[in-house]
Design a protein around this nucleic acid. Structure first.
Length: 283
DNA sequence: GTTACCACCTGAGTGC
DNA sequence: TGCACTCAGGTGGTAA
């Protein structure tokens, strides 16, 4: 899925078309994605003004004038594409309906937002804005990696006593919210930490070094509009570009980019997920 | 309480 | 060309 940078990119792309705009009509074309849609979702969305779009971890939240918020998760293959807005900032023509167009928002300003998700691992829910943070999906999340609550002391405390590989620990959304497989691999490479290293065995300086590195990797990815592998598209349909900057992800067998290193990038499977690393640079 | 694995679903890519 | 198989960016649930 879209990880934090991709979700942030999508949200920024949606904002001009959705923020402050009225949902004139919502088409819900199937009863569920990963989970069933909330009851009467189309009716509860129709006529509402989108007051604000915001992101928490890999979730997009659209605060509505009704006092409810629409929670959106893109799963692994979800896309939200904007078309036909009157300001001409996006694709002018509405595209033909495609297979897997599960939810379509027709905005009163002429924009159309289409949620397409072939694998249907995505999700939508409606929740009370006032208590959104207590929603079961949001309440368990750790701090935002780009926020002030994510710091050295937090990560050191979270890793303490953990017998799990650092790769798995960084993927744990309760420890840090928003990281996924790609950016964990990239951050560990920059930090020189082997992905199989036990989280609880890392020295405090090595854990501390991860904090600015994670922030930098995510920041650069957001600047590049995210990473496009197979499925990800920005809200205007454009690709992200950060995949061209990968040091290790998807580069199995390719030379390590470190000038003084003679190794090639290796791949191992941890908890069913591919980890890419350099055996010389990462210890 | 912690950790590892499975299932959910579809499509792209690969090998035979 | 067609079929079988593998793999994929996530995450909740369950078993050990």
């Amino acid at each position: 899925m879209p990880e934090l940078p991709e979700v942030e990119t999508v949200m920024r792309g949606l904002a001009p078309a959705m923020q402050g705009a009225v949902i004139a009509q919502a088409d819900v074309n199937r009863p569920d994605l990963r989970w069933p849609f909330p009851a009467d979702m189309a009716r509860r969305l129709t006529g509402q003004t989108v007051l604000q779009l915001r992101r928490r971890s890999k979730y997009i939240l659209a605060d509505l004038s009704s006092g409810e918020s629409l929670l959106i998760h893109l799963g692994m293959s979800g896309r939200m594409l904007v078309s036909g807005d009157p300001l001409g900032q996006f694709v002018r023509e509405h595209p033909m309906a495609e297979k897997h167009d599960h939810v379509v928002f027709h905005m009163a300003n002429g924009a159309r937002i289409t949620f397409n998700d072939p694998r249907r691992f995505g999700a939508m829910d409606l929740l009370d804005t006032a208590t959104a943070a207590q929603h079961k999906l949001l309440a368990v999340l750790g701090p935002e990696p780009l926020g002030n609550d994510f710091h050295e002391a937090h990560l050191i405390a979270a890793f303490k006593g953990r017998n799990t590989p650092v790769k798995s620990a960084l993927l744990d959304q309760r420890i840090i919210a928003g990281l996924g497989n790609i950016y964990v691999c990239e951050a560990l490479y920059r930090a020189g930490i082997h992905p199989a290293r036990k989280a609880g065995k890392l020295s405090r300086p090595r854990i501390a070094a991860l904090v600015p590195i994670i922030r930098a990797v995510l920041g650069e990815a957001i600047q590049a509009g995210g990473s496009s592998l197979k499925d990800f598209r920005q809200a205007d349909g454009e690709l992200g570009y950060f995949q061209h900057s990968f040091d290790v992800y998807g580069r199995e067998g390719a030379p390590c980019k470190s000038p003084e290193c003679t190794q090639v990038i290796k791949r191992i499977v941890q908890s069913g997920r591919s980890s890419f690393y350099c055996s010389q640079c990462q210890r």
